[in-house]
Amino acid sequence: MPVSNRIEHRLRAADRNDLSRLGEIARTSLADAATLDLAALQKEENLFVAEWRTAIDGFMVLLPLQSSLLISRLVVAEEARKQGLGAWLLDCAAFHARSLDLVAIEIQRPEQDKAGIAWLAKRGFVRNPHGGNKIYLSRSV
């Protein structure tokens, strides 16, 4: 029986060898990629890599708070979008939050990101009252 080396889906802590690929994804997907210090996040163990199907196609930055886990960044490579990776990453964040005995996951989006806010609402996120130009959303885990 042949053995397959194909990656299906796996979330893991990032290591130094991942930083080049994660930098590529950030540069093509994030407006503020130049200010994102992936090496520092990796050293702090807050950077998680999404191995999706056959490659690294996304990453998350997860920051534990008092009772919730903040998804500081959730980034999917352009070529991997609309395949379920983003939703899978949200589920992974919820699982990670439960493993830390936290009760919710949180994310913030710019107020003008109507599509992103709607996408999160379809996945169980509700808006939290906050001021400013960002929308805060959370979901129980």
Rank of each mutant, 00 (worst) to 15 (best):
E24D: 15
K43I: 12
I107Y: 02
E8K: 14
D101Q: 14
V75P: 01
G23F: 08
V75E: 03
E78Y: 00
F125Q: 02
E24I: 03
A14I: 05
I25A: 01
V3C: 05
L85G: 07
L69Q: 03
L85H: 07
R109E: 13
L69G: 03
F59M: 06
K43P: 00
S99L: 11
R123Y: 08
I105T: 11
E44R: 15
L89W: 01
R6D: 03
S20V: 11
L22I: 03
E78F: 00
D91S: 12
V103L: 10
L30G: 09
L74P: 00
W119C: 06
R21W: 00
A13R: 08
V3M: 12
A104S: 15
D57V: 00
V141Q: 03
A115M: 06
S140V: 07
H9T: 06
D113I: 05
L70Q: 13
T35L: 12
A97C: 06
L65M: 14
P110N: 10
A34N: 09
D32W: 09
D18H: 12
K82D: 14
E8Q: 14
N46G: 02
L19V: 06
E45K: 15
I25L: 04
A26C: 10
L137C: 04
R6W: 01
Q83P: 00
G132L: 09
F95M: 11
S99P: 00
D91P: 00
F125D: 01
A40L: 13
E78N: 13
K122T: 11
A118G: 06
L41T: 00
R53H: 12
D15F: 03
D113A: 09
M1G: 14
A118C: 02
A104G: 08
R98K: 15
L36Q: 08
P64C: 06
E51M: 07
G23C: 05
E106G: 05
N5W: 09
P110I: 04
A87V: 08
E45C: 11
K43E: 15
I7C: 12
G86M: 08
R73Y: 15
I135S: 07
D101W: 07
G131V: 01
A87F: 08
N5A: 05
R27H: 14
L30K: 08
G124R: 03
P129Q: 10
S68I: 01
S72R: 04
V76H: 01
I105N: 02
N128Y: 01
P129F: 01
L70N: 11
D113L: 02
L70D: 10
T35D: 14
C92Y: 09
E111T: 10
Q112M: 07
A40I: 04
Q66A: 14
E79W: 11
G131K: 02
R16P: 03
I7L: 13
A26F: 11
A55Y: 06
L69K: 05
L74Q: 01
E24T: 10
G84H: 10
H9P: 00
